[in-house]
């Protein structure tokens, strides 16, 4: 099975601050990968490098088999990206946003229309389609952003805190959808601060100060550290690391 994402010693420096420090990992095709970490650990920065938005300082990486330095154009054709920050057009309606992004991916009119119908059904967006995206409550915006990023059925989906600010009911529905996507072969690369969501992932990595400090299957890790759940594991790991770095 080819790997959807491979990263080798990927590094990003802003001035003399190292935001991402030599991280390496691979994500298999169809895998649901949880990219966890403390605030400011460098998750968004790493994802931005993978999506071709930021040039790495050093290291290598491929997405969908394409090199992140040379094959940016091909990468963009195979990925979907849902940013942590709201990044839709607030002065356009939800429908116009969807329509615009669908067109950018060159979906045929008919296909696009069906796809929008389908997604708004699944996400319960129907009644919001004609409202301006900027006026939607936060949780609804997240749904719209998700719909936008999967319109073109990308092979690899990068989701940066997709459920931030979303209510529990929808969070479950959302993960149901993600699993359906994964079942259809989509690779998911997800960051989240909800540890119960992280338990849904096939594998997770935990980042701290630019480094990956742990990587593996959630239940294996829970066992390894003898913790009741991921949340406790995360808190313990990160607190320990923070103390260590404070000592230095």
């Amino acid at each position: 099975m080819p790997d959807a994402v491979t990263i080798e010693k990927l590094t990003k420096k802003f001035g003399d601050f190292t935001a991402v420090d030599q991280i390496s990992l691979t994500v298999g095709e169809g895998e649901v990968f949880g990219f966890l970490g403390a605030n400011g650990a460098g998750k968004t920065t790493a994802i931005r490098m993978l999506c071709g938005l930021l040039l790495p300082t050093s290291g290598n990486g491929t997405v969908g088999g394409f090199d992140i330095y040379r094959d940016n154009e091909n990468i963009k054709k195979s990925i979907g990206y849902m940013s942590q920050k709201f990044s839709l057009y607030g002065d356009l309606t939800a429908y116009e946003n969807l329509w615009f992004y669908g067109s950018v991916y060159q979906l045929k009119k008919k296909v696009l229309k069906d796809r929008i119908d389908e997604l708004s059904e699944e996400l319960g967006l129907h009644e919001f389609l004609n409202r301006l995206a900027g006026n939607l409550p936060l949780g609804w915006r997240q749904r719209l952003a998700l719909a936008t990023s999967v319109l073109h059925r990308p092979k690899i989906l990068f989701l940066d805190e997709p459920t931030g600010g979303v209510d529990p009911v929808f969070r479950r529905r959302f993960w149901g959808m993600l699993y359906d996507l994964a079942d259809k072969g989509t690779t998911l690369f997800v960051t989240t601060h909800y540890m119960d969501e992280a338990e849904y992932c096939h594998r997770i990595s935990i980042m701290h100060h630019g480094r990956i400090i742990e990587l593996g299957n959630p239940s294996d890790l829970i066992q390894k550290y003898q913790q009741p759940n991921l949340e406790e594991l995360f808190v313990q790991l990160i607190s320990k690391k923070s103390e260590e770095s404070a000592d230095v």
């Binding site: 999506c51 963009k76 057009y89």
Partner: peptide, 14 residues
């Protein structure tokens, strides 16, 4: 400013 440029740049548009 609104972050939409970033979104656009992850699509196949040059």
């Amino acid at each position: 400013e609104s972050g939409t440029m970033e979104q656009l740049l992850t699509t196949p548009i040059t």
